[in-house]
Design a protein around this nucleic acid. Sequence first.
DNA 1: CAGTGGTCTAGACCACTCA
DNA 2: GAGTGGTCTAGACCACTGG
Lengths: 292, 292
Amino acid sequence: MVHNLTSARPAVNPLSGQSNLTTSRHLLLIVSWGYARPVPKPAADRALSLQLGVDRSSPVPLYFQLAQQLESAIEKGRLAPGTLLGNEIDLAQRLGLSRPTVRQAIQSLVDKGLLVRRRGVGTQVVHSQVKRPLELSSLYDDLEAAGQRPATRVLGNTLEPATAEVAAALGVAEGDEVRRIERLRLAHGEPMAYLRNHLPAGPLAMADAELQATGLYRLMRSAGITLHSARQSVGARAADAVEGERLGEPAGAPLLTMERVTFDDTGRAVEFGSHVYRASRYSFEFQLLVRP
Amino acid sequence: MVHNLTSARPAVNPLSGQSNLTTSRHLLLIVSWGYARPVPKPAADRALSLQLGVDRSSPVPLYFQLAQQLESAIEKGRLAPGTLLGNEIDLAQRLGLSRPTVRQAIQSLVDKGLLVRRRGVGTQVVHSQVKRPLELSSLYDDLEAAGQRPATRVLGNTLEPATAEVAAALGVAEGDEVRRIERLRLAHGEPMAYLRNHLPAGPLAMADAELQATGLYRLMRSAGITLHSARQSVGARAADAVEGERLGEPAGAPLLTMERVTFDDTGRAVEFGSHVYRASRYSFEFQLLVRP
DNA sequence: CAGTGGTCTAGACCACTCA
DNA sequence: GAGTGGTCTAGACCACTGG
């Protein structure tokens, strides 16, 4: 579905899997995780008693301080779902802030999906669904949360000339030297995914040890690369003999595949990934936010 | 992948300068479509000659008019990738707008990934990658572009008591009446996907004809439902005999699966979808934007 | 150093919702 | 009609970037 999404034509709305004739629409997706399970407590319909306050001596922007406090209050259940926040002018006065500053704070939470604004009505805390993790199949995170940190086995880390496919993805010339990294991702001691990545040979020299201990993206950021966007394609196919062997699945078993090209903010492709996951153990979960 | 990207976020919050071990992390993804293919033309390094202007008699907000003009200029190549926009103060003066209004316009394009701001440097047009559709596997769109509009065959549209699974997803009681809709999505006359949806029985009465002609979401919107967010899970599995028959695949063929629960802005679950796609003919594509 | 975006203020008027 | 968010203005100071 998303498939149809990206490719420019009205094609298919990912939410409906239906053809969508409207002109240009945007869907904002949020992937969120790591939230503590909320402990919802009954709260007043109005958030009058909430303790809020900003520290003007802090280097943290005022709007950001306020946003953090509100987010934390929502997360902790001190602001129950459906609670009206109270109008922006009062809030600003109570905090000694200007209205635009308060609006900026609120807007950032609206963008995260935690608050909903309605003209003529007010600003409400969204009814909880946004932050609760899914129950199903959050295997990776479940394992991590259970103290079973996923492990990485580096299978390859070499420089080689770019194939046509890699050259096209990275926007370099065929035959240019690129770094090829192959890893096996394990959890609970069992293989979960086979990850193959290609990077422009230039700036980064990565030791196997680093790759084992840290994520690729963290390494890239440390090298001063500003990630900006990525294009992804998720599909499925049957495992061939080699893949099956690698992942501990029989040949013919369904695999989840993901291809991705990542760009920095200058538009350069900084990474091309081609990954396969054991479908029996892995699925992708995410949350979509509909932007009006 | 979402995992890699996400875990890649810096440990230090640039705003607070403090190490951020906390709980909540977000990745903003944008799925965008409806863009025309850009026809990039060489352009000056500075966007001095760009024709911009707002109509104050229009009901369209000024910042929105400006944003649209900028977006259109980027899309049409009048603002080439890498172009500096010129500082906000000048831009505001040239347009007879205040700086906050200009900032609001620019910010909306930054949120879409079309512009990048750097303090001390300026605002630049992103290097094109954001809006170009992927080359690979754009099967659905290719078909549509070829005039083969995807078709829908309604296989079922009935009221029935909710099973435990459906009840949990929709947040209703087991046995409550829900609407069950089954559709086959075809393209080029061939089956592409089997879509099963469950909706709370309440407000919507849908005729088969509507389901065939319009998207589920469009119907829901027409019924006054404001979509707010959705949780999705994408995986893969092997087709059983029935599924294979339905989709024209042999039993055991890999299928791409998607489960989704959609919520309105009051937090009610308004739809539960459980879809399977022929992996041989379908993949999901989307674009991620990394929010700093 | 000059130039940029990031933040903030204290007002103002409007459009919309709901009783 | 009262209350809300949506938009807009004309300033201000700061932090960061680059030469």
